[in-house]
């Protein structure tokens, strides 16, 4: 493993912290900016402007909902953060690094800092639960023994230990999304991006997934969730950023704007 890779996957071993240390760390973290969008605009080649001058900042350890109607620019914002789309204007700064300065070759190493969960799960259908989680560890070159330990730990955390040998296509939607979360989190990224993670799930499964994301946030991960599920947003009382036609029209703590 290169020193660059080591640096990227290094995250605090949050499980060993005492309660007091965790609380202290949490309050310190909450003041530290982890993501900043600076006057960000994005226009598709079809001349449709999806984002217009977005400026916002997300601190380490925050749980943020990004809401808005279809076409408001929520997913475009996530895709620019993932480096899938290059901003037409403005900057995205993640953990102090400006995405503008990250070249094609460095992009995979940048992406390893982020865990990503999608509405349609995006799992490798022909592989089992374990293999789907393991691929994220293989990508960063983790050794076999450590890989087995980390994957089993994460599969246990999402409650799928007894199903780890099952092909993912045999699982329910909620279970598949748990696998996706385990894969996103196994490398212990500092940021978890979830694009409509409950979009394909029934209310019960949606609540379970949100509970899981909340747990991960409590363990120290910064969680950014794109959704249009009003009930979840209103019940969870987190920071909510509302987008409309590519612009921020609301940014407040504790509930959804109606």
């Amino acid at each position: 493993m290169t020193s660059e890779e080591e640096m990227i996957i290094q995250t605090p071993d949050y499980e060993d912290n005492s309660y007091e240390e965790e609380e202290k760390e949490k309050s310190e973290k909450s003041d530290k900016e982890i993501i900043r969008f600076q006057n960000l605009s994005y226009t598709y080649s079809s001349k449709t402007t999806a984002l217009k001058g977005i400026s916002l900042s997300i601190n380490q350890g925050e749980f943020v909902f990004i809401v808005g109607e279809s076409g408001s620019g929520k997913s475009t914002l996530i895709r620019t953060l993932l480096g899938e789309l290059k901003p037409t204007e403005g900057d995205i700064i993640v953990e102090g690094a400006n995405l503008k300065n990250i070249g094609r070759k460095e992009m995979p190493y940048y992406r390893r800092r982020l865990g990503v969960v999608f509405q349609e799960f995006k799992l490798l259908e022909d592989r089992n639960v374990y293999e789907n989680v393991e691929i994220a560890q293989r990508v960063i070159g983790v050794k076999k023994d450590k890989r087995i330990e980390n994957c089993n730990e994460m599969i246990k955390l999402v409650g799928l230990s007894d199903q780890s040998k099952k092909k993912v296509r045999e699982l329910s939607g909620g279970e598949q999304q748990r696998v996706a979360i385990a894969r996103a989190m196994v490398n212990k990224p500092s940021i978890l991006l979830a694009d409509e993670p409950t979009g394909n799930l029934d209310p019960n499964n949606s609540w379970e997934i949100m509970g899981l994301l909340q747990n991960l946030n409590e363990m120290g991960t910064t969680v950014v969730v794109v959704t249009h599920n009003d009930n979840l947003v209103n019940s969870m009382q987190k920071r909510v950023i509302t987008l409309q036609t590519g612009e921020i029209i609301g940014d407040k703590l504790g509930g959804y704007i109606q």
């Binding site: 899938e84 995979p108 992406r111 691929i135 990508v139």
Partner: peptide
């Protein structure tokens, strides 16, 4: 191609 896109999004290098 879906498989390739997934790999890329989880941080796989082109070589991998």
């Amino acid at each position: 191609k879906e498989e390739i896109a997934i790999m890329k999004l989880i941080g796989a290098t082109d070589r991998f």
